[in-house]
Amino acid sequence: MIRMLLVEDEDKLVATLIQGLRTAQIEVDAVRTGREGLQSALEGDYDIMVLDIGLPDQEGFTVLRKLRAAGSDLPVIILTARTSAEDTVRGLEKGADDYMAKPFSFDELVARIKLRARPADDDAAPAGIVRVGACDLDPEARTLTCRGNQVPLSPREFQLAQLLMERGGDVVPRAVALEHVWGSATRDNVLDVYIRYLRSHLGADAIETVRGVGYRFVG
């Protein structure tokens, strides 16, 4: 069972999430302030933290910065009522693994929690294999396998998939992808073309577009 720390001060939302998440086999501890959230995250044995940005004592961004400064790699999903690309980038730069804008779909939140939570030891990828979601990428053999099926990719498609997956499901900015795969940030449209190629192989939902920022591999 996934153990989750919820840092949120809206009582009704907390009650609703606790009830729903427990039925989804996710054990939840909830705190209301950033100070409590940081202390619990550092001292508790959690698989993931869901962190609201608008807390009564300090911004969730501050909590996240302090958590990463303390050396914690606990996966963090931020909740925010702010939907601008600038705020999204700010959260990701400070070490968030994912974000969701309020109001959000409960089913989507559960899916993201299960995707981002620390994997159980028996579900860890073999040495040298990059695993994101249901996909395994072998850089040495240059193969990509999703849901048990090997995916045929061109060298450029493989290079792009490898970049996206090696970020562990984090958002890869467009400029970074263009520079890494093509060595230039000037041919902007070519990235969209190759994202479409990958989606045609993997499914439309395998790669998420983060508007104004870049792309994220979901698998």
Rank of each mutant, 00 (worst) to 15 (best):
V181S: 05
R131D: 06
E166N: 06
R3I: 06
L21I: 06
A24M: 08
A111N: 07
G71T: 15
G60M: 11
D45Y: 11
P119I: 02
R118S: 11
S200R: 09
L160T: 02
L17R: 10
F106Y: 12
A175S: 08
I113M: 00
D97F: 09
A206D: 14
L38M: 09
D73I: 13
G169N: 04
V176P: 11
L5Y: 05
R216G: 10
L92W: 04
E179K: 07
P173L: 02
G34Y: 09
Q150L: 05
K114D: 08
V130L: 14
D136F: 01
F106D: 08
G91T: 04
R82Y: 12
D57M: 02
I18W: 02
A70E: 10
E157G: 06
Q159N: 07
Y99C: 10
M165F: 09
D11A: 11
L5S: 05
M100C: 09
Q159A: 12
D205F: 01
A177H: 09
R35P: 04
L178H: 03
R116T: 06
A30M: 00
C135G: 06
L38G: 01
G71F: 15
V172G: 00
A111V: 00
P103V: 00
K102L: 06
V130W: 15
T62H: 12
D123M: 13
I26R: 03
A85Q: 05
L42A: 06
R167P: 06
A15D: 14
V176W: 14
V7I: 13
I207S: 09
T80G: 02
Y99K: 03
I26Q: 00
A85C: 13
D192R: 07
L64F: 04
L163T: 00
V63Q: 05
N189F: 11
V7F: 05
T16Q: 15
L92A: 13
C146I: 14
V28A: 03
Y194V: 05
L38Q: 03
A120Q: 13
T143G: 03
D52M: 00
V172W: 03
R3H: 15
D136S: 13
L17S: 06
L51N: 02
A30C: 07
P75R: 04
A125C: 09
D52H: 00
R211F: 15
D188R: 15
F104K: 10
